[in-house]
Amino acid sequence: MHPKLPDFLASLEHYVPTVPDEVTQHLLKLSGTDCQDICLVRLVSLAAQKFVAEAAHDARQAHARRQKQPLARLKEAGYTARDKRPVLTSEDLAEALQQYGVNVKRPAYFANNIGRS
């Protein structure tokens, strides 16, 4: 065991995660784990928060790569040259999540789902 691990686990007692403890405990119960150790519950919350933050960052990078496409291709996708606001699309998120082994597919009835799966 790493010498700093007990100190880290003890610090989780005072940590307030973004995801409330009750939500994490509920999701753990749904997955078949009944965990009463608050430090472990907060460790799971922290890991989930890190995953979501990294996926959002990667999706933002995917968006930046998409914005570097030729203007004609962006117009085909429905973007205007005047609109400079970043818009996170489901394609950006799917590309980011694919790096983590999460495969995101649109349902067949999704709007603008022509020729895509």
Rank of each mutant, 00 (worst) to 15 (best):
M1H: 03
M1G: 09
M1S: 08
M1C: 03
H2W: 02
K4N: 10
K4E: 14
F8H: 07
F8L: 15
A10Q: 11
L12K: 05
E13T: 10
V16W: 00
V16F: 00
P17G: 06
P17M: 08
P17Y: 07
T18V: 12
T18N: 04
V19R: 01
P20K: 12
D21L: 02
T24H: 01
Q25M: 13
H26P: 00
L27Y: 09
L28Q: 03
K29V: 01
K29W: 04
S31E: 05
S31V: 03
G32L: 05
G32N: 06
D34R: 08
C35P: 00
D37K: 10
D37I: 03
I38T: 14
C39R: 15
C39I: 02
R42V: 02
L43Y: 05
S45H: 07
S45W: 07
S45K: 06
A47W: 04
A48P: 00
Q49S: 10
Q49Y: 01
K50E: 15
K50M: 10
V52Y: 06
V52M: 10
V52D: 02
A53N: 07
E54H: 12
A55Q: 08
A55F: 03
D58V: 05
A59S: 15
R60S: 13
R60W: 04
R60T: 12
Q61S: 05
Q61P: 00
Q61H: 07
Q61W: 04
A62S: 09
A62Y: 02
H63V: 03
H63S: 06
A64F: 04
A64G: 02
A64M: 06
A64L: 12
R65F: 06
R65L: 11
K68D: 11
K68F: 00
K68E: 13
Q69P: 01
P70E: 14
P70S: 13
L71D: 03
L71I: 12
A72V: 03
A72E: 14
R73N: 03
R73H: 04
L74Y: 07
L74R: 15
L74M: 14
K75G: 01
K75R: 15
E76P: 00
E76H: 06
G78I: 11
Y79P: 00
R82T: 06
R82W: 00
K84F: 01
P86V: 12
L88I: 15
S90D: 02
E91H: 13
E91Y: 09
D92R: 05
E95D: 07
A96N: 07
L97Y: 04
G101R: 09
V102I: 14
V104C: 10
V104G: 02
R106C: 01
R106I: 03
F110Y: 11
N112P: 00
N113F: 00
I114S: 10
R116A: 09
R116Q: 04
S117A: 13
